[in-house]
Design a protein around this nucleic acid. Structure first.
Lengths: 205, 205, 205, 205
DNA sequence: AATGAATGAGAGTTCATTCAT
DNA sequence: AATGAATGAACTCTCATTCAT
């Protein structure tokens, strides 16, 4: 049907372009280095056009936040037994953050910014909450089905998982092999080191 | 005992005041919100005076970095048996970050900034490296002395400890009880949950 | 009686809507606060549609000027004896400016703008001129018919009447009882304080 | 003692320069056309320097308002008998507005702006109030001393005087001979036409 | 050693106007 | 006849830095 597309789609595409450019720039320069003019330049539109789609810089950042949350949440849709799901989740997050360093950087920036921005803080708190609960639920079911040791404190372990994965986003820790070491140790303690999901020997560096 | 003091001392004192003010402002508003004018106002000197002591904003930030590192390092000098040292270290860091939220915030800010600033990155990497090595050494000695299980991968566990403690600095995770849960779980897995809070004399400063 | 109407009529109606909206907005926010986008929004059309009817903001303002002049002129067509006409005119203007504060505000704005806009200045000068002449003619006829004292300088009094009525449009003076006091004093000096409000049929529109 | 001057004086002089430039620009282009950059250019300083003295455009305008009020008030310091004072005041205002067209224009702009700006409105209302009261007091004393007819309503006449003088500021009315005509008629009705203060025959055009 | 004054570069935002459809 | 999208130019205001004293 040709390269025709509805006006709603076109509008949405432009918005996506702008959000994506903002996303990349935050990943590269942080909030501190974010200039709306650079965003516009990156997409190839006038600065006024940017404000046509997003009235304020703040609203643009909000859109970036939403997108980052959506992408991150996609990691939480698991398959298989609870123990498998757990293992898969850990690896999916690790993979996501390795393959999309921009997402990693933006998550870290958002985490910091939430200290000063109530609305960001609220959204991220909600997200971390549901993440924590998902982990805890998974752990409980895994214990019930015998996939994990029964003396495990699901709440504490869930907190540890979330903390470890979150620490992964910090640039100081990542980039070295230490992140992987920490995650693998977590798997070992959980007793889910099984090599099922990834068939070959894993690169240690 | 007179109120006289050498010109070098006075110079150093002024610099310290400025660094301290910068430190507090970064903790409060992040790098994004750091204005040299605010620093000068806080100390009660003219903005030109600030530039007399620190030619550029960057040089001022460097000084803050040095000070933060020094403060953080002071926590890493443990006493007692290896297992005790480990437990005490975990608690000391936790205590430090609770009692000095400014240090916590600044560490997180620096961690983020290191992604964009080579010189900060280098210094922080060195610091995290020595931290990791200290933990690993402690774990190995603890295993040797029978304080910990022998099947423990000292490298992985050290990484996990550092990651967990680092995650603690992130505002999104801290402030709730989740941080404590994670740390306690760590202690449990390490088998150092012992209720004697601090066995030996401990340097908190 | 069908809802059909010629395309010219429809065009004219749209133009009227836009002029009316502009009129109201100038009355509310002054020229300083006039945004074409607000005009378009008020009428419920796109900003580009506004520019279809009025190529420039200036042309839109010109149309407002014309409309304001027409409305104001309609008050200047008196009936009855010269002395009655005079009294009625004073009251009609006062009434007009009280009942239509928008017109009052727009007249004041136009008066100011005429200082910077030659074409507005020309139109308003012509209008004030004919107003002045109408007053003077009225005064002369009133003197001739014995309705007023014969030692009256028709030119000076006409000027004073116009000035006083014009001052009425200024927001600083109006709104208090001072405007009324001034007008009443004028009537007193003219000797037309008679309590019969309107002797003949009077065109208020 | 040379061209030295205290720092306070220098600071005040700069402020005065900026206020004066703003004053002139408002007189020339109205509030609508007032650009802080033009003000800075006129004085020959950087735009940032302007903001060093006046943090916001609004604060600059406030300073202009104050200055205009001060200048206008200076007309209200009369000498001689009440009737003389009255005559002198009328002429002083007329003279002021003729010799300082900028002041005239700014007063008109302020009058209009007061419709939208509460703080300006308050200041101007106070000023008009004291003006009205001064006129009324003068009239009463003049009547008592026999300089004016005793059947005169001092309140109404005061209102008329203020209104007439105010109307004088409007560009539409001024510039022609009509303003003078109106003021002279006022004097005639008051019976204070005496040529004492100004010795020679007055220009009618 | 310290200051008030000044600045260049640039930030986010606004607005009348135009263009393709 | 009407629109969504886009734009250039300009606006007020900010900030790290410098200079004369």
């Amino acid at each position: 049907m040709g390269d025709q597309e509805g006006p709603l789609l076109r509008r949405e595409r432009r918005r996506q372009e702008l959000v994506r450019a903002t996303f990349d720039l935050i990943a590269r320069n942080g909030f501190e280095g974010l200039r709306t003019r650079d965003v516009a330049d990156m997409v190839g539109v006038n600065i006024a056009t940017l404000h046509y789609y997003f009235p304020t810089k703040e609203s643009l950042i909000r859109a970036v936040l939403d997108q980052a949350m959506a992408r991150f949440r996609s990691t939480l849709t698991p398959h298989g037994s609870p123990a498998d799901q757990l293992r898969n989740h850990l690896r999916a997050v690790r993979k996501l953050l390795i393959e999309e360093p921009e997402l990693k950087a933006v998550m870290a920036e958002l985490a910091l910014r939430s200290a000063r921005d109530r609305s960001i803080a609220a959204i991220m708190a909600k997200m971390y909450d549901s993440w924590h609960r998902a982990m805890r639920g998974l752990l409980r079911r895994a214990v019930k089905q015998g996939g994990l040791k029964s003396d495990l404190d699901s709440d504490g372990v869930a907190a540890l998982i979330v903390a470890t994965l979150t620490a992964t986003t910090l640039p100081t820790l990542s980039g070295t092999r230490r992140t992987d070491q920490a995650l693998r140790q977590l798997e070992r303690w959980l007793g889910i080191t099984g090599s099922k999901p990834s068939a070959g020997p894993q690169a240690t560096d």
